[in-house]
Amino acid sequence: MIHRSETLLSGLIRIDLLRRIVRLVKPIRSAELRRACSAESRREASHFVDCLQVRILFFFFLFTVEIFTQPGNSNLFSAGNRLKFGNYLFSQNDYLRAAEEYRAYLKVESDDTARFKLAESLLRIDRFTEAADHFKGVFFSRGLGDYARLEFYKALFLGGGYVRFRQTVNQENYMPDKFSTEVKRLGMISYFFDNSVLPDSSEMFHYFDDSVKIRIRKFYLMKKFPAYKNPLKAAILSAVIPGAGKIYTGEIGDGITAFAATGLLAFLAVDNFKAGHNFRGWLFGGLAAFFYAGNIYGSAASAQIYNAGIKFDFNREVKLYFEKRNYFLPSIDFLK
């Protein structure tokens, strides 16, 4: 679970220590040393003891270091450990928990990278307003400032207030020097996501690469001239021939059914009037009129639903297209 290099390091320290201990214990156990330490050569022995004491002191120092560097031994909730744990959670996509760790860490330490990652965590769990605020805190960082500004704009964009987003883009107060094209392009993309009046096509295409221009042009035309059906036209068609309006909006089955049902009831009405069954004549006639009127109404409604479908499909296609390409924004290396 711990960062691999750290485990490796502590492992190496341990191996090293063991080797030293073995070296230390061996001479003591050996008979030569016992003799050396006997009365004949007290001086050498005392020298050895001095050496040993220094060695022991050295080892004691090493062990204390080891005790305190071992994360298990120090406080799990220390600032440094919070940061480590937060980074781990971030790498596991557990962003809410990561954000909590970064928050606790930032109470003690001031660290732009951690604040950036806190903001990024919030951005990734769709808490856009908070994310934008935290990115603002990194605007004047030397290495991260431009990235923070870029992500700030992304947070505003994903937050969905496209009009305000475009205003902020146009004011250029927070514009990152490095990524101004990307942000302005994002401003153009945002026009596909709401109902504002589209900018001039040359202005729009200016920000996109030649390789995607065809696709963007297609979206632009689809947005500007959507293939809508006119509800009034559908209603008039159905008034002339029952069901024709529905066929116009693509509901062929409904159209034929409407024609058949209205026609049959009208025929029954006429037939009954001819046969002198006035009550039945009025009954079927009334029903025919009811269906006739309902179908005119329904044709207009059907055209609207058709249009809603066109809009829905367009929005989905645009969303998938840009989402898949991360809105043509660069990916940030140190977050990987």
């Binding site: 089955g253 409904d254 034929i256 059914t257 409407a258 049902a261 009811f290 269906f291 009127a293 309902g294 179908n295 109404y297 329904g298 409604a301």
Partner: peptide
């Protein structure tokens, strides 16, 4: 009135065998 028209339209759509 409008509710009635909506109902009439729904009734026709219900009659459609391939709905």
């Amino acid at each position: 009135v409008q509710g009635g028209l909506m109902f009439a339209d729904r009734f026709i759509r219900d009659l459609n065998p391939i709905k």
